[in-house]
Nucleic acid binder design. Structure first.
Length: 800
RNA sequence: GCGGAUGUGGCGAAAUUGGCAGACGCGCUGGAUUUAGGUUCCAGUGAGUGAUCGUGCAGGUUCAAGUCCUGUCAUCCGCACCA
């Protein structure tokens, strides 16, 4: 058969669409399979080969499931709010709506050209008002339930994008979008109280099937630690200085305290501090630094002692000094620490520099050289002396603290509340009204969606004000509560909002009454398999689990966790082994590959190039190799005239069916394809196959190269669509060969092989090995010490 | 610094419970077809003339180690003064 991939691919893509081949049905009697991939941000530069790899994995699984009789939901959509579109719109003068529509149309066309079996009737667009209506609706539910609050704090601000960023978006001290340096700025910020769900997010990980490193990253991100809060009496004042520690048992070793430069104690006791000028100066210096500089740079400890205020160590009763230093953060714990220089390296460094006492309370190290952080016997600690187990000494101390009313057990998280607003136009408007008499008032549900006003000018205001603030007709409104004149909130939601619940909307995308019907949610949830990039496992994946768990607590979704299983694909690197980038000129456009080699080749190659979860460089010649494979498959019908089944090929078929079926389930597409290539080599060596065997072959290959396989199937008289035909099954008995070749070793070294019946006993195996002339010759004159036979594998004769 | 992962031919990579290292593909070499290039097909392809040696390096356990243990080096990723 001539492999005219262009004609074939167009033909079958049209046919699948015309016949609604991949539309998930509402037939609840069938077993369901919901496979989810991260929907793309429709950027102006079009699709990247990375998208193809990301979607090809579950594409193969989904296609296999359909052939196995499942009702499959494999949806796609567009996460289209966000800065790149807005920046592009500002640059070109086009409206973001127009830009977005154009980009979505382009992505859609590209995705269809690759032949993905998405259910195109359920496309979701986060910027569609019928979608963001429900994003706002969920936000209001959170507002109603006390999970939304506003606070004035120092925030990460990107001077270039003129936007406030979450900690997650400003990692490493630079803006996630434009990579400019982040500065700290005081702002009114909307927060979602995600910390309230910290324990639930952590505990929920126990019941889901995520890759171990994904779980670990989430655990690190949430960063739960247990310890104790202890209140230190400030001397001569009716004031307690509260600290958090994970090692309350080292309390007897506390020789000073450190508070963050922004700690309120300073303001409160300004009058009593005799060196307030020095303290203010230090504080100013710190304020100038970004959090990045404060935390990232390895440097000497700095700080200033509070003159005029001291604290009392509640264990030893001794008076101890208090310092301010930037190594203590206001944002973690209570912004104050008890310093135990003998057993904490940071405290040790600080104590050495400022000449503070170092008191050993755990034996085992040399505290004159460095802090000792290991375990050991407690000393200098009164009632704790003699304890050697960390757990016991900690719980004993907590008992004591509670008995004396100066402290209690406590839990802290690294995760902070989620800064949930941006001063930008292209996002979901936050549906809140500020009323001079009623305060913050929710926009009534029946008024949703609160639409983005259609305006010409959407450039950000000076000083980081939202573009919406300039639109009087949007801002001025009446209070939903009292009817008086009020002003709308002008900030919009961050880009992560829309993606936090999109997988629920796919289930019922055109519903006007609810974000999705309960009946459908019950059938389709949870997502059976979610695949995406490693870069999203701490942000999007945590945010969306949070939203989902919130909805679960309201009884609006049926299961406690949204995703039963989560995997991740590896990146595709440029041919030179580094990340693809425009500036390096190593970007591969998937459409070029489709045009030159065909979609089937592209799909096969991205899955064949290596382990699905690992990064791998692009190789054009390997693409050609995959094309060659498909061309040879296209020629298979010419030798499918065989009438008799050969035993050898039959066994090879059963082995391949098994291998491909099992490998797909483990995302081992590279070895699945290799197995089919190997089978093809065997077929060519034999020179003929039966028509049934041909049909089996193209059924196995169909999820990878569906256009070509459909074409062959039709040409051979197959009924209906191959994509909806039956997945082949294997007979375990036929995967086992009757005779096998085993290795023969002498003293662990390979010396030859013998062919024996597969069910030979150990004795027969050894006998057969000894009969082999080469082996016999080598054993000549040697004493046999030991004989080992492993059925199906080898014989090892230990001889001297 | 802490946590995690990885290290196998010229290249991408395979390799149940320890059991013939290098499947499959690329590349390369030789041959056939072709006016030629390309394509396609056939044969070969870890190193070494050889006995043998070979999975980052050094040890160890074992009849047997890519796989298990100890140490070490390198690379990548995540977190990062988290009290």
């Amino acid at each position: 058969m001539k492999y005219d991939f262009k004609a074939i691919e167009k033909k079958w893509q049209d046919k699948w669409e015309a016949e609604n081949a991949f539309v998930a049905s509402d037939d609840y009697s069938k077993p369901k399979f919901y496979s989810l991939v991260e929907f793309p941000y429709p950027s102006g530069s079009g699709m990247h080969v990375g998208h193809i790899k990301a979607y090809s994995g579950l594409e193969v699984v989904s296609r296999k499931r359909r052939m196995q009789g499942y009702n499959v939901l494999y949806p796609i959509g567009f996460d289209a709010f966000g800065l790149p579109t807005e920046n592009y719109a500002i640059k070109t003068g086009m409206h973001p709506r127009v830009v977005t529509d154009k980009n979505i149309a382009r992505f859609t066309e590209q995705l269809k050209k690759v032949g993905f079996s998405f259910d195109w009737t359920k496309v979701v667009d986060t910027t569609d008002e019928n979608y963001y209506k429900w994003t706002q609706w969920i936000f209001l539910k959170m507002f109603e339930n006390g999970l939304v609050f506003r606070d004035k704090t120092l925030v990460n601000y990107c001077p270039s994008c003129k936007v406030v960023l979450s900690n997650e978006d400003s990692q490493g001290g630079e803006c996630d979008i434009c990579h400019s340096a982040i500065v700290q700025k005081s702002k009114d910020v909307w927060y979602l109280r995600i910390t309230e769900y910290a324990d639930k997010l952590l505990d929920g990980l126990k019941e889901v099937d995520y890759l171990p490193n994904i779980k670990m990253q989430q655990e690190n991100w949430i960063g739960r630690s247990t310890g104790a809060f202890v209140n230190f009496q400030v001397k001569g004042a009716d004031e307690k200085l509260r600290i958090y520690t994970t090692r309350p048992d080292t309390l007897f070793g506390v020789t000073f305290m450190v508070i963050a430069p922004e700690h309120p104690l300073i303001e409160k006791y300004r009058d009593r501090l005799t060196n307030i000028d020095a303290l203010d100066a230090y504080k100013d210096e710190c304020a100038k630094k970004t959090e990045f500089e404060r935390t990232q740079l390895v440097k000497d400890k700095t700080g200033v002692k509070l003159e005029g205020l001291t604290a009392i160590n509640p264990a030893s009763g001794k008076e101890i000094p208090i310092y301010i230093s930037d190594y203590v953060m206001m944002g973690y714990g209570t912004g104050a620490i008890m310093a135990v220089p003998a057993h904490d390296q940071r405290d040790w460094d600080f104590a050495k520099k400022f000449g503070i006492d170092i008191v050993e309370v755990i034996k085992g190290g040399d505290i004159s050289k460095e802090a000792y952080t290991g375990d050991g016997e407690m000393v200098n600690s009164d009632f704790l002396n003699g304890y050697t187990n960390k757990k016991d000494s900690i719980s004993r101390m907590i008992e004591e603290l509670q008995a004396r009313g100066i402290g209690e057990m406590g839990v802290q998280y690294k995760m902070k509340d989620w800064a949930f607003n941006r001063q930008r136009y292209w996002g979901e408007p936050i549906p809140i009204v500020h009323c001079p008499s009623c305060g913050m008032v929710a926009v009534p549900y029946e008024e949703l969606p609160l639409r983005l006003p259609n305006v010409e000018n959407f450039e950000p205001g000076e000083g980081g004000e939202s573009p919406l603030a300039k639109i009087d007709s949007f801002v001025n409104c009446s209070c939903p509560k009292c009817g008086g004149a009020a002003k709308r909130e002008t900030d919009t939601m961050p880009q992560w909002a829309g993606s936090s619940w999109y997988f629920l909307r796919y289930i019922d995308p055109h519903n006007d009454e609810a974000f999705a019907s309960q009946e459908k949610l019950k059938y389709w949830m949870p997502v059976d398999w979610y695949n995406g990039g490693m870069e999203h496992v701490t942000r999007h994946l945590i945010y969306s689990r949070f939203w989902y768990k919130f909805l679960y607590d309201l009884g609006l979704v049926p299961y406690a966790e949204p995703y039963a299983k989560r995997t991740a694909q590896g990146m595709i690197l440029g041919a030179n082994g580094v990340k693809m980038s425009k500036s390096l000129g190593n970007v591969v456009d998937p459409l070029d590959v489709v045009n030159e080699y065909g979609a089937d080749t592209l799909r096969t190659y991205v899955l064949f190039m290596g382990d699905y979860g690992s990064a791998a460089p692009w190789s054009e010649s390997s693409v050609k190799g995959c094309k060659r494979f498909l061309e040879r498959v296209a020629d298979l019908p010419s030798i499918a005239k065989g009438s008799g089944v050969t035993e050898k090929l039959e066994s090879a078929f059963h082995k391949t069916i098994k291998k491909v079926s099992e490998d797909i389930e483990q995302l081992k597409f590279n070895t699945a394809i290799a197995a089919m290539m190997g089978l093809l080599n065997e077929i060519d060596a034999v020179g003929s196959i039966t028509k049934d065997e041909l049909m089996t072959f193209i059924s196995l290959l169909c999820p990878f190269a569906p256009h070509l396989c459909e074409e062959i199937y039709e040409a051979e008289g197959g009924k209906g669509l191959l994509s909806l035909a039956t997945w082949p099954t294997w007979d375990e008995a036929k995967t086992i060969d009757s005779t096998i070749e085993i290795a023969v070793q002498i003293s662990g070294k390979l010396k030859g092989t013998v062919v024996i019946p597969a069910d030979a006993s150990r004795e027969d195996m050894i006998a057969a090995a000894k009969q082999n002339s080469k082996i016999a010759a080598q054993l000549e004159g040697k004493t046999i010490i030991k004989e080992i036979a492993v059925p199906g594998k080898l014989v090892n004769i230990v001889a001297k």
